[in-house]
């Protein structure tokens, strides 16, 4: 039998070890991706269109597509998720209906993204006849994102103490006023953090997009901002390969001579973008909390 002091030391030591191992694995992965990818990066790489057979293609279109798709997906999923979360946390009674909704959300969030992608293909692309398009992709991403976002917003609402709700109601605010004028402002920083983190996941998603937003990236004319023109960046009905899909595609069937370099470079861009999202989430969350709570 170890004495409690030694026991404590051993426990702390192994916990440090495990934590260290996790960090080490992450560092190794990041290091490998960045070391092999960053040297490929250049302004040309980030802005030029991809080339199918020749050397020297970039990922400009894919990068743009990723952001555009992300924004569209967020525009669709955020209001729904916000409404669902407010309903579930603030209004819904604890009964079998809400339990069912919650279970459904949980199951939806654990669906493999490739299944979501195939569903999106059959439903949006084929049945609704949207074709391989940004819109199909954005809907598929909504399915993928909605449960996670709803959960995260609900968690944000949960962090606001009940006494705040009572305080609002006791002042003669209606329930809706209490939610919109007291609870939501107080929850904004943490909601924003959740949104940005889920943006990171959406940004890196490939499987759900392969069969919905498509695997081709037609050249875009960045001077044409009429969303009805096929070469316009804003057109939501054009097929749009994203960065993550691009990486998958190059690695499975890329035939350009510099496929390896492009794949490494794209991975680095993807990882850097997601890191940026994470840091932005922290920074903005903190900033906003300070501002909102002492404005």
């Amino acid at each position: 039998m170890m004495n409690p002091k030694t026991q404590n030391k051993v426990a702390i030591g192994s916990l440090y070890g495990i934590a260290g191992l996790v960090v080490l694995i992450l560092m190794a992965l990041l290091g490998y991706i960045l070391v092999s990818g960053v040297p490929q990066l250049s302004w040309h790489f980030l802005t030029a269109p991809a080339k199918a057979f020749l050397e020297g293609g970039g990922v400009g279109v894919q990068l743009y597509n990723s952001f555009y798709l992300l924004i569209l997906a967020m525009l669709i999923s955020f209001p729904i998720a916000l409404g669902a979360a407010i309903y579930l946390y603030e209004y819904a009674k604890d009964n079998w209906v809400t339990t069912t909704i919650r279970t459904a959300i949980e199951i939806l969030s654990s669906l493999p993204s490739v299944v979501v992608g195939l569903f999106g293909f059959l439903f949006f692309v084929v049945r609704l006849n949207l074709g391989f398009s940004i819109l199909s992709g954005a809907f598929a991403l909504t399915f993928f994102n909605l449960p996670l976002l709803t959960r995260s917003i609900e968690d944000s609402l949960r962090t606001i103490d009940t006494t705040q709700r009572e305080g609002g109601l006791a002042l003669g605010l209606s329930r809706w006023e209490t939610i919109t004028r007291v609870i939501l402002p107080a929850a904004v920083p943490s909601i924003l953090t959740g949104v940005i983190l889920s943006a990171g996941r959406v940004f890196g998603e490939a499987a759900a997009l392969i069969y919905t937003a498509g695997q081709s990236a037609p050249a875009l004319d960045f001077t044409d901002w009429n969303p009805f023109n096929i070469s316009s960046p804003l057109n939501p009905m054009r097929p749009a390969e994203t960065l993550a899909v691009h990486i998958w595609k190059i690695n499975s069937e890329g035939i350009m001579p510099d496929a390896k370099a492009i794949s490494s470079g794209s991975s680095a861009v993807l990882v850097l973008a997601i890191l940026l999202f994470n840091f932005a989430a922290r920074y903005l969350g903190k900033r906003l909390y300070k501002r909102l709570t002492s404005a």
Binding site: Q164, E166, L171, T293
Partner: peptide
């Protein structure tokens, strides 16, 4: 509005 309430835990809004 006519019957106000103060609680056990001070609960100022975060403003």
């Amino acid at each position: 509005k006519e019957i106000g309430m103060v609680f056990q835990q001070p609960n100022p809004f975060p403003f």
